[in-house]
């Protein structure tokens, strides 16, 4: 796994539980202890009530493709992505009601459709970081 050269998230006090869960193959999102609102991306407070008391909850990892694009050219990101082109960048709506940006993998980009059911799969990039990606759900 040496030489992973694409950008990686920074591990902070806030996001440590997220990346540790990812390493275990679990996807977690934030839930507000005060008003139960769930949110993604992780923040220091709840976007619904502004409380700073947030917890992490494990989610199913199941969702649907809300929209997607097929990257045909690298502009404004690492040249390392060149070898992946064409690849799918998508907005994935999880069953729990939050939206993530990720990749749809394990399928020809031309076969990806809006509304397609997907499930999380983790790509181990480094010993510390596994990224949540999505593949077509088993029917």
């Amino acid at each position: 796994m040496t030489g992973y050269a694409k950008p990686l998230p920074e591990i902070t006090d806030l996001t440590k539980p997220l990346w540790e869960a990812s390493k275990r193959g679990e996807l977690v999102i934030q839930k507000c202890k005060k008003c139960s609102h769930m949110q993604w991306y992780p923040r220091h407070s709840c976007v619904n009530c502004a409380s700073r008391e947030m917890e992490w909850i494990k989610v199913s990892g199941k969702g649907r493709v809300y929209s997607f694009t097929i990257a045909r050219q690298v502009i404004g990101n690492s040249p390392e992505f060149q070898k992946d082109i064409p690849f799918v960048v998508a907005e994935i709506d999880l069953e729990e009601g939050v939206r993530l940006y990720s990749n749809v993998v394990g399928v020809n980009p031309d076969d990806v459709k809006i509304g397609m059911q997907v499930e999380v799969t983790f790509e181990e990039c480094t010993p510390e970081i596994s990224l949540p990606k999505f593949k077509p759900a088993k029917t």
């Binding site: 998230p9 990101n77 690849f87 960048v89």
Partner: peptide, 9 residues
């Protein structure tokens, strides 16, 4: 953290 690692441009 939540976009660029997936190759958003």
């Amino acid at each position: 953290d939540y976009m660029k690692p997936f190759g958003t441009m």
